[in-house]
Design a protein around this nucleic acid. Structure first.
Lengths: 201, 201
DNA sequence: CTCAATCGAAACGATCCGTTCCGTTCAGGG
DNA sequence: CCCTGAACGGAACGGATCGTTTCGATTGAG
């Protein structure tokens, strides 16, 4: 993945502003390290070494691991996980959930998400980053699914936010307890429950 | 809390078996340390120091932090969080949820639960401990709430397990994103959604 | 030209980790 | 009655990471 040229000579300051080359090298090194060793082997020390950067440079721009991780995510969020649109809430939820679990299981970035949640439990600033920067962006697709369902009259629009919390909570619970192997039956049952819960009436 | 007598002289072996005094001192020290400094300041190093015990003794009986934490919980689980029984699912859920969030917020043990979840994300054995030893025990009260509701005909008995997952997931999601301040409105709406979701027919 | 902020390198003290020795203290088996 | 084996606490180990600090060199802005 991406060039990784630690021998490209020293990368000096370009003046009193952030060096884009340094930033790019650091983010790339962070992404590669995450892919190779997972969250467990992810340290600022090693990122700096690989990027040919100084630790002060990292700490200058990313005070905590979570900040750097969120940046890595932001750079990768484009490719994967396209929003579903099957015309039915239950089907949308089932296909999205199976894709999400697959993403969490089968990609380095996805696997690191557990580490991001864990990080947020010991660092208050990481928690703020997770809740206020990371989540709102990632929740857009899910919210769209429920909003489309509401537009079709499948669910009560007033219930959308609470349904999202229930739905995300379900996924996190499975993830954090290590039960995200593909499980179409449970996913399908849960999707039906959520559709029933939000039903107008 | 509890005696904490590091000056009580050396506590030697009592032969080829576990020394109850050492075990009690270690668990007590762990509980006190957790109360004083929270999960962040919770290290085997410091527990051993306070308990007047050797680190090998700790590692002999509790291979990971999670094991020791679960033991601390087991020792405290008696007092708090009695199962509700208001005769209605929604009311049971609301009162239980508010009590649970209060427990998580306002007690040292409760606050450490976030750390236990985080620990389980980096250590596979800790994850097993959390899922297979800790959770089943703690879920008994919740399961009882839903089973009573099913017995009253409020919900479909076949939906119980899935409703539990949704309910616990909701609570974890709020906890892990730092939103467990008392919020009766959201709790009440969510309880109604769950009751609707599980409704028979 | 001067100033300010950046850069990477190196080293710092500190904290934990998990393990390994050690000499001591007993209980239980032969 | 003695010996074996296991548990005890103390100490030290190598290793890793953290977050900070100092340093000289670089370069753009004013």
């Amino acid at each position: 993945m991406s060039d990784e040229q630690p021998k490209a000579g020293r990368r000096a300051s370009i003046g009193a502003r952030r060096n884009p080359a340094a930033e790019a090298a650091i983010v790339a090194a962070a992404r590669d390290l995450l892919a190779e060793r997972g969250y467990a082997g992810f340290s600022f020390e090693e990122v700096a070494r690989r990027a040919g950067a100084g630790k002060p440079t990292l700490y200058r721009w990313w005070p905590t691991k979570a900040d750097l991780l969120v940046e890595v995510y932001a750079g990768e969020k484009a490719a994967v996980m396209r929003p579903p649109d099957n015309g039915h809430l239950i089907e949308d939820l089932v296909s999205y959930t199976r894709a999400l679990w697959s993403f969490w299981r089968d990609t380095p970035t996805g696997r690191a998400f557990r580490g991001l949640i864990a990080e947020a439990q010991s660092s208050p600033t990481a928690q703020v980053t997770l809740r206020d920067k990371f989540l709102p962006e990632r929740l857009k697709d899910v919210r769209a699914v429920f909003e489309q369902a509401a537009a079709r009259g499948e669910i009560d629009p007033a219930a959308i936010e609470d349904l999202i919390a229930l739905y995300i909570g379900f996924n996190w619970f499975r993830l954090l307890t290590g039960r995200i192997e593909d499980d179409p039956a449970a996913i399908s049952r849960t999707a039906r429950l959520l559709a029933t819960a939000g039903g107008p009436q």
